[in-house]
């Protein structure tokens, strides 16, 4: 028999053997191969340990009144008002937070975006009649530069324009 691990022609054979799905006739040549092939033996042992672990696992028992409670909740939902149904469908669908979180993120994005792209100082400075505001040192620097530019124009202006 050719090694399934090396040839990769029939890798499912090892999986079926480990899960006990092979007939004794199908398993016999593979078992003979496993005696001489360390790789296939190691793979087979690992797979069998997984299957053994799964065999040992027992699901949690379902409470006896599970069905009764489930149908009671469905019944309660059916009798509830349209706004409750709308709330559940639009805001709290099966995903729960998976919808609410993106909506909240979008709101925060808008708020942060407004703060980033529309600085209040800028809006106030565009309107000279707005109430007094505190100036930053960078604003003073820009005023300083503008006054310097004006000084330049005054000095370079023709004598007639100065009067």
């Amino acid at each position: 028999m050719q090694c399934p691990m090396k040839t990769k022609e029939n890798p499912e054979l090892l999986l079926d053997y480990a899960s006990g799905r092979l007939t004794p006739e199908e398993a016999a040549p593979l078992e003979r191969h496993l005696e001489s092939c360390a790789d296939c033996r190691a793979f087979s042992i690992a797979q069998k340990s997984i299957w053994n672990a799964l065999d040992l696992w027992e699901p949690m028992p379902v409470p006896v009144d599970f069905d009764r409670k489930l149908y009671a909740q469905i019944d309660q939902y059916e009798k509830s008002g349209w706004w409750t149904k709308l709330w559940h469908r639009s805001i709290w669908p099966a995903g729960g937070f998976s919808t609410a979180m993106p909506i909240a993120t979008a709101c925060v994005t808008l708020a942060v975006g407004a703060m980033l792209y529309l600085p209040p100082l800028y809006r106030h400075m565009l309107d000279p009649s707005s109430p007094q505001i505190k100036m930053e040192s960078s604003d003073l620097e820009q005023i300083e530069m503008t006054l310097e530019d004006m000084e330049m124009f005054k000095q370079l202006a023709p004598a007639s324009a100065k009067s």
């Binding site: 942060v112 975006g113 980033l116 792209y117 600085p119 100082l121 800028y122 400075m125 565009l126 309107d127 000279p128 007094q132 505001i133 100036m135 930053e136 960078s138 604003d139 620097e141 820009q142 005023i143 530069m145 503008t146 006054l147």
Partner: peptide, 26 residues
Amino acid sequence: PGLYAQAKKPNTIHPPRARLNAIDKL
């Protein structure tokens, strides 16, 4: 882009009209 611009350029550069208005305000 906004956060990057804020981090890179902490001082807001105002347009010329805003600077002139700031002189009036001062």
